[in-house]
Design a protein around this nucleic acid. Structure first.
Lengths: 149, 149
DNA sequence: GTGTTTGCAAATGTTTTGCAGTGTC
DNA sequence: GACACTGCAAAACATTTGCAAACAC
C-alpha cells in the first residue's frame, strides 16, 4: 500500500489551507481526505461515507456531507456529475481529465482533458461562455453497448 | 394561443404509438403531452406537474412521473440533465440542440446541435463511444457571471 | 476560553412503489 | 370484460438543518 504518504501529504496541505481561513483540521476531515486520496476512482457521497467508516466508524454521515462541501469551497475537492444525478467527488490537482458515461450500462470512460479545447475556445469567443469540461460527464453509448444492438 | 393544434397533433401521434404497443391513451397522458407541447422551454418534473394541474387538477404527481417514464421509453419524450441533478423533459422531434448551464447562476444557454460534431467523430473513431450531445448539459460560467468576478 | 465542528435526530425534497378501484379498448 | 392505468398513501432515497455537546486552536 503506497497510499499512506500521499494521503498524509494531502492532509497536511489541506490543514494549512484550513487554518489560513480560521478553520480547523479535524478527525472527520482527515478521514475524508484520506479516503479520497486512497482511491483513484471518483466516489459518490455514499461511497465516501463507507470508505470513511472503514477508518473511523464514529464519523457521521452528515459530517461527511458537510466536509465535502467545505473542502469544495476550499478548492481541495471537486465533483463531477455523471448521468442520472449521481455526483462523484475527487481530490483536486489530479491530472485534469474528463468523463463520458454510457447511458446504457453506466460505465465511465476517462478522456483526455484537451478533448473539448476547440469547443471551449468557440464557446468563449461566440457566447462568452467559459466551459468547465470536467464538471459534467458527457453521455452516450460505449462500444460494448453499441455492439450489443 | 397557437399551441392547441400542435398539442392535438402530438396527442394523436402518440396515441397511435401507444395503441400499437397495446398501451392506452389516457387523460393524464394527454395532459402531459399537451403541457410539453405548449411550452418551448424544457420542464422539470415538478414544472410538468404544475402545468398538468392547470389543465386537470385531479392528475396525481405519481402519474406524471409514470407518464414521463412511459413516454421516454416510447421515444416521444426526451430528458436533459442540467447541473446539480435537475432533469428536464421535452418532446422529442424538436430541432436538435444542446445546452450549457452556468454553474453560478443556473442560466441555460441553447447551442447549435452541431457544436460537438468533431468531438463526436473523434470519440467514435478513437474510443468507439457514440456521443449523445443533447442528453447532458455542458457546464461552465456564463458571460454575465464571468464578468462579475 | 472561544468559536468551530460534530453527532444526533428530525425535517426536507424528490422519486418510487403496492394496491385496490377506474377507465380504455 | 380484460387488463392497463390511475389515485392514494406510504416507502425509499439523498441531502440538509437545528441544536447541544465536544474539540481544535
Amino acid at each position: 500500500m503506497s497510499e499512506q504518504p500521499d494521503a498524509a501529504a494531502a492532509v497536511d496541505r489541506v490543514a494549512g489551507l484550513l487554518r489560513a481561513r480560521g478553520d480547523r483540521m479535524t478527525g472527520p476531515r482527515r478521514a475524508v481526505i484520506t479516503a479520497l486520496a486512497a482511491r483513484r476512482t471518483h466516489l459518490t457521497a455514499d461511497q465516501v461515507v463507507s470508505a470513511v467508516a472503514e477508518q473511523d466508524a464514529s464519523v457521521h454521515r452528515a459530517s461527511v456531507y458537510r466536509t465535502l462541501e467545505t473542502l469544495s469551497a476550499l478548492g481541495v475537492v471537486q465533483h463531477v456529475h455523471v448521468g442520472h444525478g449521481t455526483t462523484t467527488y475527487h481530490l483536486a490537482g489530479d491530472h485534469p481529465h474528463l468523463h463520458a458515461q454510457c447511458s446504457a450500462c453506466g460505465a465511465v470512460l476517462d478522456l483526455p482533458g484537451s478533448l473539448l479545447d476547440s469547443v471551449s475556445a468557440r464557446l468563449l469567443a461566440e457566447h462568452g461562455f467559459e466551459l468547465d469540461p470536467s464538471h459534467v460527464a458527457l453521455s452516450g453509448l460505449c462500444a460494448d453497448c453499441r455492439g450489443r444492438r
